[in-house]
Amino acid sequence: MSVDLSLEPALRVRGIEKSFGDLRVLRGVDLDVAPGSIVSLLGSNGAGKTTLVRILSTLVAPDAGTASVHGHDVVDQPGRVRESISLTGQFAAVDEVLTGRENLVLVARLRHLRDPERVADDLLARFSLTDAGARRAGTYSGGMRRRLDIAMSLVGNPPVVFLDEPTTGLDPQSRIEVWATVRELARGGTTVLLTTQYLDEAEQLADRIAILHRGTIVQDGTLAELKALLPPATVEYVEKQPSLEDVFLALVGDAGDTDGTDGTPVTPTTTEGAQPAGEELR
């Protein structure tokens, strides 16, 4: 009897444990990820985020427990799991000598897809890289390089994508570009497991947030559900000042206001009762 995968979790993890020598990294992880959703695995350095992703992508075998990806067991059916996933690590795995288009064509050929040139052109358009497609990837900005890296991971349309700290080392504008890319993935029906140590990243992107601490998931829920765990906030009047990120994006971001003559950014001002400068950039 066939199983309707749309009714099953795209990722199902039960009691996963993993040790390296005497170091117990994962101590019994349980996690479900619904199809087409973005789940953020949040935790500090050393919490075990990357180890869990490596287990789910069949790069490391668990010591105990079970895990399935798109209905396939990671231990018993590693080949089927690999056909269903794509993994993007903490550093962009692009060939900087090749152009953006050549990088995509190469991956499409390695995956034996028909018409790799068309596949490359479609992905360049999807990730707003068409104009840069003929340029060497080594000339790309950090955000463009990461977007190309994610585009390369989507060659063949895998239903599940693992993004392991995708914005590490990126500037604020590049982070926003990557966030837009991740949202686009979910809108297209792709299941995304995103690991991060940035609280704002999880808050901006995730449908659900799983907090990994000392090798176990200590809490899992929507942002609203997690906030409800704390006592209600005391309402006080606080004058909202723009953050450093607001100032940075206002000065150098594409969305910054100009005076309409020479493109010089206008210095934002705040008056009592007015919306603080930079809020529209969030």
Results as ranks from 00 to 15, higher is better:
21 G>A: 08
22 D>P: 02
24 R>P: 00
25 V>K: 00
25 V>Y: 00
26 L>P: 01
27 R>Y: 00
28 G>C: 02
32 D>Y: 03
33 V>P: 00
35 P>Q: 12
36 G>I: 03
37 S>N: 04
37 S>C: 03
38 I>H: 01
39 V>R: 04
42 L>E: 07
44 S>V: 12
46 G>R: 05
48 G>F: 09
48 G>W: 01
49 K>C: 13
51 T>A: 13
52 L>R: 09
52 L>Y: 04
52 L>Q: 04
52 L>T: 04
54 R>L: 11
55 I>L: 11
56 L>P: 02
57 S>L: 07
58 T>E: 10
58 T>M: 14
59 L>W: 05
59 L>N: 07
59 L>G: 07
62 P>Y: 06
62 P>N: 07
63 D>N: 15
64 A>V: 11
64 A>P: 13
66 T>E: 14
67 A>Y: 04
67 A>T: 01
68 S>E: 14
68 S>C: 04
69 V>T: 02
70 H>W: 15
71 G>V: 03
72 H>L: 06
73 D>V: 07
75 V>G: 04
77 Q>K: 13
77 Q>S: 13
78 P>Q: 08
78 P>Y: 10
78 P>A: 09
80 R>Y: 14
81 V>E: 07
82 R>A: 12
82 R>Q: 13
86 S>I: 03
87 L>W: 10
88 T>I: 15
89 G>D: 05
90 Q>H: 14
92 A>P: 01
93 A>G: 03
95 D>K: 03
98 L>C: 00
99 T>Y: 11
99 T>A: 07
99 T>V: 08
100 G>R: 02
101 R>D: 05
101 R>F: 00
102 E>M: 07
102 E>P: 06
104 L>W: 05
106 L>F: 15
106 L>P: 00
107 V>L: 12
107 V>Y: 09
108 A>E: 08
109 R>D: 11
112 H>K: 14
113 L>I: 02
115 D>Q: 08
115 D>S: 12
